[in-house]
Amino acid sequence: MTFAGRKDIAPDMGRLLLALPRDSIVVFSWTVSEYDGLGFVTAENGDEKAGGKESRRRIRGGEEGRDVVSLFFPSEKRQDVLELIDALKAEGMSLELLREEEPDFPHGAKTEDNPEEFDSI
């Protein structure tokens, strides 16, 4: 269920595409944003770049009013994000994980293991 990372976000950011009821998007986004450094949520507009067929889907399996959102997160927060999603599901929020895009670390990426690659100010 994982795919290569996107080129239009920071290379250390992962992305989850999630389907959830339209009336839960604000609560979901607010919940994610309240955890400092956990990530951020954007609603998808249905173009190919945003996620293809999954992003255009507004009715799935007879369930009306479900939209697709992206949850972007730093790679080191992946486990925390998955735990939050599990907790929200346990509390009754209807979330469906459609796809995961892993961080895309290019060759020679700037990391703590490669400090000489950091830009000087």
Rank of each mutant, 00 (worst) to 15 (best):
R58C: 03
D8K: 09
L71P: 09
P74C: 01
M13L: 02
R78N: 11
D104G: 02
F28D: 04
E34V: 12
T2Q: 14
A19L: 03
D36R: 10
P106T: 03
E100K: 01
K110Y: 08
G65P: 09
P103H: 05
E116A: 09
E117C: 11
M1W: 06
I25E: 06
G39P: 04
P74Y: 01
L20G: 07
V41I: 05
L16W: 01
D47N: 15
M93W: 08
R22P: 13
V68I: 01
I121E: 06
R15D: 07
I121W: 06
V32C: 04
G62P: 04
N114S: 13
D12V: 12
P115A: 08
A10D: 08
E83W: 02
I25Y: 02
F28N: 07
N45D: 14
G37Y: 01
K7T: 07
I25N: 02
L18R: 08
L95D: 04
L20R: 01
G108L: 01
Q79C: 14
G108F: 08
G14F: 00
E101Y: 05
S94F: 13
T42R: 09
E100G: 08
S75N: 15
S70T: 13
E91K: 13
S29G: 11
R6E: 06
E83L: 02
V26Y: 04
L16D: 11
W30I: 15
S94L: 13
A87T: 05
